[in-house]
Design a protein around this nucleic acid. Structure first.
Lengths: 377, 377
DNA sequence: ACCCGAAATGTATGCGCATACACTCGCTGC
DNA sequence: GCAGCGAGTGTATGCGCATACATTTCGGGT
């Protein structure tokens, strides 16, 4: 690393001009084979690696696409960081007494989106740079990311609107997993509504259920809202009355859902008076707005001796791994995480090709996974 | 995106020189407040985002750190890509009849490593660029990555030696999760040996086990080898005879482990002659070189009516999520994935600070998770 | 008012590369 | 024997910024 060799060094060593060196790398067919060989030898001997910065500057395009995620760790400032494991520390023995399974869903989610993006980027010869819009210096971080890339895919809600508007003046922006929205950006969204609709259609048509309730999510979650709409679509299509509001709202966490479930259970019991049979007052099916919610309900229902799917049918949304491990396994709707990343990059590329096209929205299809919790084998 | 504004545009609009604009961004304290305000206004009005390429070129440092992963998808060429989900396709209904839980361990693993790296990079104001050394154009991809970063963290085995040597002449390289090796690079490794040692110490000391066997991994896995060494360390320390070779070798997959387990079970049974009690011939404890192997064994043992930990004690290594969902839950050793990424970036930074220091190797401690499969509560 | 040092700002240059354009050859065709 | 041509190569320039250095402005002391 004494001093990284440049085109000039290579040119001198190979006895050619820098233009030829550059051509050997960029447009090999324009150079005679014998010359090419000489240059390659010089490159190899010197350990030459072209500077991406210089190339990017000269070519007016970096060949890098950016991916911007929200901060799932909830770290606001440098001080919030947990201490790193100290090097040389002894092996730690932990008596793991159980408790809720570690929730790494969001990490997996982001990881898969990244994988999809990287895959598609690689296919087309792009590199991927990631950034997390986190902390007080968020604006600066996002700006720097935007300054280094040819296009930026942003996970919905990870960047404040004004900041997004600012960087969008420099690079094309694709918003991932947000609600289809009528702004100036391209969008990749997940078909929450159609997914829930298909799931509930199945519950009604194939399992003959008519008494269904929807457990919603936070008020500010567009996903939860869309899923509720899908729920209503299905009910209406079946000629059933569709509620205006979810029967309840979870905070999307398993623990929160447990509390909610306990409350609901009590209400139903007391509301029916003493001596009533457990759970009879519950809806026949609970369609939850996400998996964590469904799993929390499952915990409480099982604990209370209410059988799933016998007494109550339960479904989730997202397709997290834990839904395969629960008893019974949870019927859910699987998110196209990898596709999300791929589609975002694909859309960015087409935007770069045709900057003038009107903003596009791509709605990705989902997959309904039918398992035991809805009564399927 | 008509034409991204530059410092010149901002300078003109603000009525200052480009040097002042640059200073407002890089060293705000050198600029009078009133001037700063004017410049910031111009920046905001024009939608100015500094070019990372130009800055990198001028500053001779990009502020980007690279992360290079192997291709876990096994994609060699562009043609190998699975078709992306088609847009506008209908919701797919999948009857999920069970089978092995989807193995997303490696994705999670890489994702967590990335998360750790990003976290540490963010802390110090760096960006992270990822690359997957995949396909036939691997050399080019890695070169481009190296050309764009100030330092590169490479997952062991993801880059061929000669290529690594080439790029190491341009940027500092840290090798992650490889065996401690005496090459010119900095290394971050996981203390496989001490982890297994501690685990087996526990089996011997706390559970009084004396008849233990090690289920190894592939011959070419340094990790598996180190874990075996830890196993032997513990036996020897307890005055027990230590085998020269693992009792068997798995291919690190759950399915492969199942096959292996069945074969072993048959051998033991037939070797003992008819009428013998099931499983009595098996070792009292099976220390597996990774979790997938242990889970595969668990599948087969359970199927055969052999109780874990009653008849056979079983342990794994890695700490994948599935070990929390198995019955019984698997005692294992958890990998410091996030720390791996953090430590890599930390090491890169110190290397950038002091290029002259001798190559360093950091050995990350692991955590032993004691659960039911070894007899712990 | 004037001088001097510090603070603030401007000017000029180079980072390493891609590329437009100019140039040199070796041929072909006449 | 020379114009014309294309393949191969060299020369010169600019990409947008950071920064060394030059210059101006400002404030305080006398």
């Amino acid at each position: 690393m004494a001093k990284a060799p440049t085109v000039y060094d290579v040119a001198q060593r190979a006895g050619v001009s820098i233009a030829t060196v550059s051509r050997v790398l960029r447009r090999p067919d324009d150079v005679r084979e014998s010359t090419r060989t000489v240059v390659h030898e010089a490159i190899s001997e010197l350990g030459y690696v072209p500077s991406g910065a210089a190339r990017g500057l000269a070519a007016r395009s970096t060949g890098v696409l950016g991916l911007c995620f929200p901060d799932v760790d909830g770290i606001d400032e440098v001080d919030d960081l947990p201490d790193p494991v100290r090097v040389g520390e002894a092996v730690e023995m932990v008596r793991d007494v159980g408790g809720p399974v570690t929730a790494r869903w969001s990490n997996l989610y982001l990881g898969e989106v990244m994988r999809g993006a990287e895959l598609e980027a690689w296919r087309t010869g792009h590199a991927v740079m990631i950034g997390v819009a986190r902390g007080l210096r968020r604006a600066q971080a996002v700006n720097e990311l935007a300054g280094r890339v040819d296009g930026l895919a942003v996970l919905s809600k990870s960047v404040p609107d004004d900041l997004l508007a600012h960087i969008a003046r420099r690079v094309p922006v694709v918003v991932m997993a947000g609600p289809p929205q009528d702004d100036a950006y391209d969008h990749i969204s997940v078909d929450n509504r159609a997914g829930t609709r298909a799931l509930v259609d199945h519950l009604i048509a194939d399992h003959g259920l008519r008494d269904l309730a929807f457990v919603g999510g936070p008020f500010d979650s567009p996903d939860a809202h869309e899923r509720f709409q899908g729920f209503r679509d299905a009910l209406r299509a079946a000629g059933l009355p569709a509620p205006d509001e979810p029967a309840a709202r979870s905070d999307f966490t398993r623990a929160g859902a447990r509390d909610l479930a306990r409350t609901m259970l009590e209400d139903h019991l007391t509301g029916r008076g003493p001596g009533d049979e457990t759970g009879r007052a519950l809806p026949r099916a609970l369609v939850c707005s996400n998996d964590q919610t469904a799993l929390g309900f499952l915990d409480v229902l099982t604990e209370a001796g209410i059988e799933v799917p016998g007494d109550v049918v339960l479904t989730g949304f997202d397709g997290i791994d834990a839904t395969q491990a629960s008893i019974p396994r949870l019927t859910t709707v699987s998110q196209p995480m990898v596709e999300l990343g791929r589609a975002a990059v694909e859309l960015l590329r087409s935007r770069l090709t045709d900057p003038g096209a009107p903003p596009a929205t791509v709605n990705l299809p989902v997959r309904v996974l039918l398992r035991e919790s809805c009564g399927c084998a």
